[in-house]
Each structure stands twice: as structure tokens, then as C-alpha cells.
Write a protein that binds this DNA or RNA. Structure first.
Lengths: 155, 155
DNA sequence: GTAGCTTCGTTACATCTGCAACGAATTCGG
DNA sequence: CCGAATTCGTTGCAGATGTAACGAAGCTAC
């Protein structure tokens, strides 16, 4: 009998394929959230993420926001531009390093921020409501593990 | 003492936020895979997904491919166009319903398909190698549960 | 049969996204 | 100090993606 096993039964069921399912799930969740933020606050996800960082840390440079959000610097730059034009954030040049721009929420920005946070959390809750508490913890743990592994990029 | 609890400590830690982590993980995985397919085979993920459906089911209309891949009909249309121009698929009008176009892999398409499948599976394996077998099953189960819940869209 | 609605797939347009190149500012080496 | 290399953030360009509008074909109901 041949000892040569065929390299692979060249068969792949998309519906069972993990990266595919991950992608579909994320698209559904992200789109739903993006539409909601946009409809309620006129914000993109990138803009909201930048605001979340500022809400959390008070102030941050564009580079800081990149690091905290894993967004591209171009994306951050454009989000910041848009937030400035809505007057939700204010910026000043970092006196210590004049290449840097430091962003802060304006009062209006803080207000919007505080209104979005519960909305964001409710989206998370929607997701978790599908699962038992135990499953929710599992999901969180698995995500952390996979994120740690996929490191900065490439996976 | 006030019995009025503030509606929410308006605080959100992006790094712990589930939809965010999901999004980051999926972007990493999808980008890595997209680059790989593109570098090795010159294919986009959309093109590959369409080929996967054809590889699995033999033939399919654009609408079928939409349903099987959850991709927009525009995306499918463009992927098909590109695959036609590479001669990886062939098309004919469905004689039973002349609005429909039926696609099939060409011999060349089948060959590429059979070469990609193991590559795709190895990406899945990379992901699973981070986890114990038990965790892999948990992940799969959680994804299914969440996908079922998020239904067609909106989450 | 034919008017009217629906479905299939394409194209036009707008948006988002990332890479590459750039000017400005800083840091490093001598 | 002064030139080279690096970092910060912007802009230009190309690719991907979705919505809206469309022509073509089919189906429904009279």
C-alpha cells in the first residue's frame, strides 16, 4: 500500500473556517456599532476611539493615540482633524517637543464622551448577554491569549 | 447619604473592551492572511472566498456566492470579474434563469484552489496552536453562539 | 399578453484605509 | 556647533468596500 498520504484532502468549508467566522462576527459587531455611533453622535469608530483614549488619559499626542488604539497614524491624524473641526478636542504643540501635538477633550467633547461610554458598554453587554457569565470570561481569556500571540502584527 | 448612584462611572478602558479586542484580533488575522494570499497567489480575500465556494460546491451563481460568503453582491461581482480576467473561473448564463450567471472553476482555478486550501488551513492552525485543543473548541463554540445571535446583521 | 413588481448583477459615486513620500523638528556623532 | 539619521504628523495616491441607481430578465395578476 502507498505510504504517500495526499498532502491534504484539498477541501475547506468556509463556514467552519475559523478566520472566516472571526471576520464575519467582527464585521457584524463593528458595523452595528459604527452605525450607531454615527447615527447618534455623528462619529466614526476611529474618532470615538481617539476620544476614549483622551477620556481615559486626559491628554495624549497623536503617537500616543496610535499606540493605545492600534490605529494607523494616518487614521489618527484624520480622526483628530475631524474632532478638531467639531470642537470636541483641542490641540496644542507639545512645548517639550515641538513635533508633537497634544490633544485634550474640550468641555463639549467630554460631554459627548460621557454620553457615549454607556452606549459603548451596552454594545458589549449585548454581546455578553448571548453568553453565560462563564462563557463571557472564556471569550475574554481566549481573546487575550490570541492577541498576545498575534503580537504587533502578522499573526 | 445620596441614594442616587451615578448612571455610570463614565469610564471605559479600550483595552478591556470586547468589541475593540475582537476588532483588533480580526484585523491582525485578516491582514496577515490577505497579505499572504496576495503575495503567493495574487488574490484578494474576496476572490479567494469566491473560489472556496466554487471549490466546495462545484458551481454557483453570484447570489449563491453572496449567501455563502456573507459578502456584498458588489464585492462578489468585482471578485468574479477579476477571477474571470485571470481565467481562474469560467461563467455562463444560467439557461433556466437568464438573469443569473453561473461560475465554475477552470482547471487552472482548481489547481490554484487546491494549492491555497492547505495554506488557508495552516493559518487556522497557527491560530489554534496558541490554544489548547480544549480552548480551540471553546473558541469555535463561542463564535458559533455569537454568530447565531448576531443573525444577519446589527448584532 | 401585458403592466407592475421583484430579482440579478453591473456601474457610478462616496467613503474609508493604508502605504509612500514629504516638510518640520529633534537627536546623535563627531 | 553642523550634518546625518530618526521621529512626528500631514498629504497624495491607490485599493477596498458599501450605497444608490440602473438595465435586463423573470414573475404575478389581471
Amino acid at each position: 500500500m502507498s505510504s504517500r498520504k495526499p498532502e491534504a484532502a484539498p477541501h475547506l468549508d468556509l463556514e467552519r473556517f475559523l478566520p472566516y467566522r472571526l471576520s464575519v462576527l467582527t464585521n457584524r459587531v463593528s458595523n452595528a456599532i459604527a452605525r450607531d455611533y454615527n447615527a447618534r453622535f455623528g462619529l466614526s469608530v476611529a474618532e470615538w476611539r481617539a476620544m476614549a483614549v483622551l477620556g481615559r488619559f486626559g491628554s495624549a499626542s497623536a503617537t500616543d493615540i496610535c499606540a493605545r488604539t492600534e490605529m494607523d497614524k494616518v487614521t489618527v491624524s484624520r480622526a483628530a482633524k475631524s474632532l478638531l473641526s467639531c470642537k470636541l478636542v483641542r490641540s496644542r504643540t507639545d512645548p517639550c517637543d515641538r513635533r508633537r501635538t497634544i490633544y485634550v477633550l474640550t468641555a463639549a467633547g467630554r460631554k459627548i464622551h460621557d454620553r457615549i461610554v454607556p452606549v459603548a458598554l451596552s454594545h458589549e453587554t449585548d454581546l455578553l448577554d448571548t453568553l453565560t457569565p462563564r462563557e463571557g470570561e472564556q471569550l475574554s481569556r481566549l481573546l487575550d491569549k490570541l492577541l498576545r500571540r498575534t503580537g504587533a502584527n502578522t499573526g
